[in-house]
């Protein structure tokens, strides 16, 4: 278990992290979300033992990161923001260095390195210096370094930044394959990623936790949750259909976009309007090109939560 207890970090008068508390259990994949400068990286750095907290405590499997840093660091695999490494080294020598400093035996090193090279497709660049690698390879070398010793706690700051969609997919699969018995904390800007790999999401804004839920409940907070969007063939019927939707039972309000020729009907709380709309559409033979039941929009929830907090 890792635990933050009223953890704070001040830089002079700037409050980067403002007394946050949370716990993560094995099996949880926690996604840290938040605007730039919200305190995500600082929080992760405090857990990794790079930045000392101003007040409060961070604990990794019972070890205080301040009082027993070496013991705690042994249990953590950490990918710093930007995946820094030693540019003049090759991925092979770099992984060897990490393995030795983490005290892996020669056999473990060979087996684990082999595994990392295969899982992260590092084979083509093994003997090339890291500074000459593409952003995607650099990032994957950083990830390999973090999970080389098979740590029970994995903290990764933007693990998929700079990867192409295929690589992103592979890294997400890698994270999920390790998720069962590990504590995994990742930070990301990509909201779909939270939905794809995390089973818990914490949104941080201005150094404070403003939401701590599963991604699906977070999505349910969206005003688009259970809304129905229709895209029509032609604009001529738009006003007429809008009017009829407005009168439908359970519909709270309607939003129309003439430009894209779409109508979105928002339900009253907990009301289900999909059936009413499809029935009506069938009877009236509306010229529907597309019909979509919205599950909710994470980016909209994110914006609402983080900007509402900013206004407060």
């Amino acid at each position: 278990m890792i635990r933050a207890d009223v953890l704070s970090k001040h830089y002079g008068s700037l409050v980067a992290v403002d007394g946050i508390s949370f716990q993560v259990q094995p099996g949880e994949v926690l996604g840290f979300l938040g605007p730039n400068g919200a305190g995500k990286s600082t929080t992760m750095r405090m857990f990794a033992g790079f930045v000392p907290p101003t007040s409060g405590t961070a604990e990794v499997c019972g070890f205080s990161i301040e009082k027993q840093p070496t013991e705690a660091k042994r249990l953590i695999g950490y990918l710093p923001e930007g995946a820094p490494s030693y540019g003049e080294m090759t991925p092979r020598s770099f992984l060897n260095f990490i393995a030795r400093i983490r005290g892996l035996s020669r056999r473990e090193t060979a087996v684990r390195s082999e595994d990392m090279i295969e899982r992260l497709n590092l084979a083509p660049v093994l003997d090339q210096s890291i500074e000459t690698l593409s952003k995607g390879f650099k990032r994957r070398v950083g990830i390999a370094q973090a999970i080389l010793h098979d740590p029970p706690v994995l903290i990764m700051d933007e693990p998929t930044d700079g990867l192409d969609p295929n690589q992103k997919h592979e890294v997400r699969q890698l994270i999920q394959s390790m998720a069962a018995d590990k504590i995994i904390v990742i930070s990301t800007h990509i909201l779909e990623e939270v939905d794809a790999v995390c089973n818990r999401a914490i949104i941080i804004s201005q150094g404070r936790i403003v939401a701590d839920e599963t991604p699906s409940t977070l999505i349910n907070r969206s005003r688009f949750h259970n809304a129905v969007t229709l895209k029509l063939d032609r604009k001529t019927d738009l006003d007429d259909i809008t009017q009829q939707l407005q009168d439908l039972n359970g519909v709270e309000h309607i939003e129309v976009s003439h430009k894209t020729c779409t109508v979105t009907a928002f339900p009253k709380s907990d009301a289900s309007i999909l059936k009413g709309i499809t029935d009506l559409a069938a009877i009236k033979d509306w010229p529907i090109e597309q019909l979509k039941l919205e599950s909710g929009r994470l980016d909209e929830v994110f914006r609402t939560i983080t900007t509402a907090d900013g206004a407060a």
Partner: peptide, 14 residues
């Protein structure tokens, strides 16, 4: 400058 200090200082090294 390269940020590798963050890597070094988060390894189990005093």
């Amino acid at each position: 400058k390269s940020g590798s200090i963050e890597l070094l200082m988060t390894l189990p090294v005093t």
